[in-house]
């Protein structure tokens, strides 16, 4: 079987399209590359959607944490504490069993017991909490002069937020937010190891890498392939966030623009 046929058979295997049976023996390099790459679709799906939706909730929670009223501030603080103070792995397990018991009572919740929706909800809340803490830090360090200048121009309320506070907050938070995005993509590999079942062996990249390592008893091929894919993904994330960073900083003189620096902040 040529490699091209393997790609046609297994390229979309993680979505349930193509050959049903996974290879059982005589694993070729091509099969490992194709299946692990196919699994990456899940990692990109979880990471991308959680990031895009989590962004808005993070902004809201950050504003909540910076609010004067304790009725708004306390829930925001607790939300951030609960999701940042406990392991994501345990959050996944808890959420999965919570959704299972909800499903037993109200059938409406049945999609949440499968990974595509349930794990996405957990990742969304998790990244919202981590990003909210970053955005809150940035809100606190907005130069006083910029807000005073906005006041002097007669801006207030929504337009002051939309035109002055929010862009500055994003600009200050962006390097840390880039790290958050990278580690969110890494965290997506936990999904299929934490209760959420991989129906009909439709798993993510780590699921397939683990499958090959178990079957061949040789970790030295599938895991480096997985690592290669993730390095590529990380580079893409850095590239895209770098472009946004340039745009956010475009009004600053060249030498004051901050370059993105990648600092690992690791497991959640």
């Amino acid at each position: 079987m040529s490699c091209w046929e393997t790609i046609i058979d297994y390229g979309l295997r993680s979505q349930g399209i193509g050959e049903r049976l996974l290879p059982r023996n005589d694993f070729t390099l091509c099969q490992q590359f194709t299946l692990i790459g196919s699994g990456m679709i899940w990692n990109v799906y979880f990471g991308l959607i959680a990031l895009c939706t989590g962004f808005f909730m993070a902004t809201a929670v950050a504003l909540g944490k910076a609010a004067q009223s304790a009725w708004i501030r306390k829930p925001a603080e607790w939300f951030i504490f609960v999701f940042r103070g406990s392991p994501l792995f345990i959050q996944f397990f808890f959420a999965y069993f919570l959704f299972l018991s909800l499903k037993a009572q109200y059938p409406v919740f049945s999609p949440l017991t499968s990974a595509w929706a349930g794990a996405l909800v957990v990742l969304f809340l998790n990244t919202a909490a981590y990003s909210a803490e970053i955005f809150y830090g940035a809100l606190q360090s907005i130069p006083k002069g910029e807000i005073e200048a906005a006041d002097a121009y007669g801006l207030s309320g929504w337009s002051r937020f939309r035109r002055v506070i929010w862009p500055t907050m994003l600009r200050l938070a962006w390097p840390a937010y880039t790290n958050e995005a990278i580690f969110l993509f890494h965290a997506t590999t936990l999904v299929f190891f934490s209760g959420f079942p991989a129906l009909q062996q439709r798993g993510d990249a780590l699921y397939y890498a683990n499958y090959f390592a178990d079957k061949t008893f040789n970790p030295f091929i599938p895991y480096p392939i997985l690592a290669g894919y993730f390095i590529l993904l990380t580079l893409v994330v850095i590239g895209v966030f770098g472009l946004v960073n340039t745009r956010l900083n475009r009004h600053l003189p060249q030498e004051r623009r901050k370059r993105l620096k990648i600092k690992p902040q690791v497991i959640r």
């Binding site: 890494h186 590999t189 890498a209 390592a213 895991y223 690592a227 993730f230 990380t234 497991i267």
Partner: peptide
């Protein structure tokens, strides 16, 4: 920096 830590955990044990 570039690779999920869980991959390392699963890799190093074997």
């Amino acid at each position: 920096r570039g690779i999920p830590d869980i991959a390392f955990f699963l890799f190093f044990v074997i």
